[in-house]
Simulated assay, not measured.
Amino acid sequence: MACTARDRDIRPALRQRVAEAAPGGRVVDELGLCHGFVRVDVASITADCLHGYELKADRDTLSRLPVQVEHYSQAMDRCTLVTGDGHLQEALRVVPSWWGILRVEADLFGLRMEQLRAARPNPAPDALATCRLLWHKEALAFLEELGAARGVRGKSRAALYARLVEVVPEAQLRARVRQVLLKREEWRAS
């Protein structure tokens, strides 16, 4: 007999699974994208990959999923949808083929997760969306290190991000953002 899987049941099991798959990495709940407009339910951060996991429990709605997919797909290196059978078919029509799919099933004996599709590398990440993961002081510090802060000190985050995209190759920029997120000690709403 199947039971309904709830976010509060799925999240701890997912966090444990993600942490075990990425030793030395960091697992963060509710990572803000686009300055908090969208939040990644669970993010795995390693030196090589920023992997976002979107949970859609049986009681959730998929109404926000297209917007979440758009923003996750801009900023993340890999993405995985975590869902039960109730949303699986509809969700498969929304998420891109490079997204992973992790099916969750709950019964009287507990929670099981089955990898239906492995996440593949994001074919078209957006450098500006990646920059938006940095706080103002982090973006400015990077520009100072590069000797490229002249003319943007005291400017908005948008100006700092634009300069970073202008002067840093995308692969280097993405690597630096992951490095900053791994070392960040104080997390706050973005």
Score class of each variant (00 low, 15 high):
L116F: 08
A148K: 15
G52W: 02
W98Q: 11
R184M: 02
A175F: 04
R112P: 10
D126P: 02
Y53V: 03
G84F: 04
E166C: 13
K137L: 01
A106I: 12
C3Q: 15
R78Y: 00
A13Y: 14
G32L: 07
T83D: 06
L140N: 03
A75Q: 01
T80R: 01
W135G: 07
T130G: 04
A175I: 03
A139M: 09
A106G: 09
A158M: 12
A149W: 13
A2P: 15
L182A: 04
A47W: 03
A124H: 03
P96V: 07
Q179N: 00
C34N: 15
R153P: 06
V177G: 03
L134P: 04
A43D: 06
L164G: 06
G154H: 07
D77M: 00
G36M: 11
D60H: 11
V167W: 13
A21W: 03
E166K: 15
T4V: 14
L62N: 11
L81A: 08
M1G: 15
R17H: 09
E186F: 01
P12W: 15
S97Q: 14
R117H: 06
L116W: 09
A149C: 13
L182Q: 05
V180P: 02
G147R: 10
T4W: 11
E105F: 07
E30Q: 13
E20F: 01
A162K: 11
R103M: 12
A175K: 05
R120S: 13
E145H: 05
Q172V: 10
R120M: 09
A57R: 14
D48T: 07
L181V: 04
A57Y: 10
T80Y: 01
E166N: 14
L143H: 07
S190V: 05
R176T: 02
A141K: 09
Q89Y: 07
L92Y: 04
V67C: 06
R15P: 06
K183M: 00
Y72D: 02
G110F: 15
L55E: 08
A175R: 10
T4D: 10
K56V: 10
R163S: 12
R188C: 07
A141S: 11
V165K: 08
A158R: 15
A19W: 05
G24R: 03
R178Y: 01
S44G: 03
C49T: 14
L182W: 01
K183G: 01
R132F: 01
S44D: 04
A148G: 08
G86M: 09
R78T: 01
V40N: 05
S63A: 15
A91L: 08
A21M: 05
Y161V: 07
L102M: 11
D58S: 14
G100C: 08
R176W: 02
V18R: 05
D29P: 08
P169F: 06
R120G: 12
V67W: 03
A159L: 12
D85C: 04
E144T: 08
E54P: 06
L160T: 13
R11E: 13
K137G: 02
M113C: 12
A141G: 11
K183V: 00
V95S: 09
L111Y: 15
A141R: 12
V104M: 12
